[in-house]
């Protein structure tokens, strides 16, 4: 448990650096560090599926962010907004944090999952019947693709739509750019 605390503390340090540093590239690298630490935390929490996914997703995330920003003469957008606003923001966020932590008072302590507290929890059913009903030994996969496959279909659709959205956002200019000259003016006129 102490190890978990240390890892989380490192993640928070990384988050503060990622948010506060001037250089965009080091900010992205800090985000990567947070992601990899999160992957280790998942491993400690008994979630190897999540650890693997987080690891590869983090790599791809870094590649995409760096590709998008690195050549763009990263002008360090210095400073925050004005000081009074910043102070008010910090105070408000501190209040939000205090409220969230005080809400945690009624929360069951860490390490007692719903499996221990409720005999009727759906996870009991999944763990007991997962192998028998789906023939799969990885219960996470059994939940993901059998008991709750409807959800997963929706998630796959969301993923697809997000990527199609990215395509749609980038499409027009990407088409227009290579010709640059006359075709560009046409595209400009058609769009505005």
């Amino acid at each position: 448990m102490a190890l978990l605390g240390i890892l989380l503390f490192l993640m928070i340090i990384g988050a503060v650096i990622a948010v506060e540093t001037r250089n965009l590239l080091s900010s992205i690298v800090c985000l990567g560090a947070i992601g990899f630490l999160l992957s280790i935390v998942f491993l400690f929490l008994g979630a190897p599926d999540l650890a693997i996914t987080q690891l590869v997703v983090e790599i791809l995330c870094l590649v995409i962010l760096i590709r998008a920003t690195i050549h763009r003469r990263v002008e360090t957008v210095a400073g925050n907004r004005e000081f009074v606003g910043l102070a008010v923001t910090v105070v408000m966020l501190a209040i939000v944090l205090m409220l969230a932590i005080s809400m945690m008072a009624g929360f069951p302590s860490l390490g007692t999952s719903v499996l221990d507290r409720m005999a009727q929890a759906p996870s009991h059913f999944y763990l007991l019947q997962g192998k028998a009903q789906t023939g799969v030994t990885n219960i996470v996969t059994a939940i993901l693709l059998d008991f709750r496959a409807y959800d997963t279909l929706g998630e796959a659709t969301v993923l697809f739509c997000a990527v199609m959205g990215a395509l749609a956002v980038l499409r027009r200019s990407a088409r227009r750019r290579p010709e640059e000259g006359d075709a560009g003016d046409e595209g400009e006129g058609g769009a505005e």
Partner: peptide, 21 residues
Amino acid sequence: DPLPQALVLTSIVIGLAVLAL
């Protein structure tokens, strides 16, 4: 508990797609 893991698993990948967007 496997249930939160199954839900977070999809959330991670969706997060990547949304980040790309």
